[in-house]
Design a protein around this nucleic acid. Structure first.
Lengths: 107, 107
DNA sequence: TTATCTTTGGACAAAATATGTCCTGAATGG
DNA sequence: CCATTCAGGACATATTTTGTCCAAAGATAA
């Protein structure tokens, strides 16, 4: 993510990319072909970008698409934990389940 | 979760609860007031239980509702990682984001 | 102040996703 | 054979999410 500081939300990183480029919402929105209002919402984490949109964003700002996708996924998980007021240890459990389900599928 | 072995899926744990009780899908489904087919799908992780259903299941089998909910949430995260073929390190990132977002909200 | 441009945010239609039921068929066990 | 359980497809319904439009608030400059 080059010049973007880590562990902020997807939306904040996107805003930072835009501000670093010195562009307005309208300008960026036009380039990635969405309504400026939608872009504003995504920057404030009020709407989630589709995968297609993430690709367009990555292309437009020349950042790695896979990394941007991972930023988005980790955001989703973080917000789920917060929404559900879940204990952080469920992440450890989830990790173990991933390993378990993988073994199930290789049978 | 008493007699249920850990780190299997929510569905498998549910099936185990039912089989330990020596009951059929139809019997349990009748008690928790859903279609047996839906219960079968939940046991095979083809449908996700609603929170209300999780409560009914917890009540019926006398297991801790909060723990059952956590089992369900960790399942959801595990399946998301698998579906997206995401790297496990996004869990670490998600954990840091949770902390970060919490600080944001206390301002 | 006025004019202009940017950003925020509500309302809502449209699209996408998920839930729950019905039904058919395979498998098992009297 | 008959009865019962479980698997799984199809599908209507319900719920959730997305994306747009529009109005208003906030900035900035003249």
């Amino acid at each position: 993510m080059a010049t973007v500081k880590k562990h902020t939300t997807f939306g904040e990183q996107l805003r930072q990319l835009r501000e670093t480029a010195g562009m307005t919402l309208r300008e960026v929105a036009a380039n990635i072909e969405i309504d400026p209002s939608l872009l504003a919402k995504i920057e404030r984490n009020q709407r989630q970008p589709t995968k297609h949109l993430i690709k367009n964003i990555a292309d437009f700002f020349s950042v790695n698409e896979k990394e941007l996708l991972e930023e988005f996924l980790s955001d989703q998980i973080a917000y789920k934990i917060l929404d559900e007021k879940a204990d952080l240890n469920i992440l450890k459990v989830a990790e173990e389940k991933v390993a378990y389900i993988k073994t199930l599928r290789n049978e």
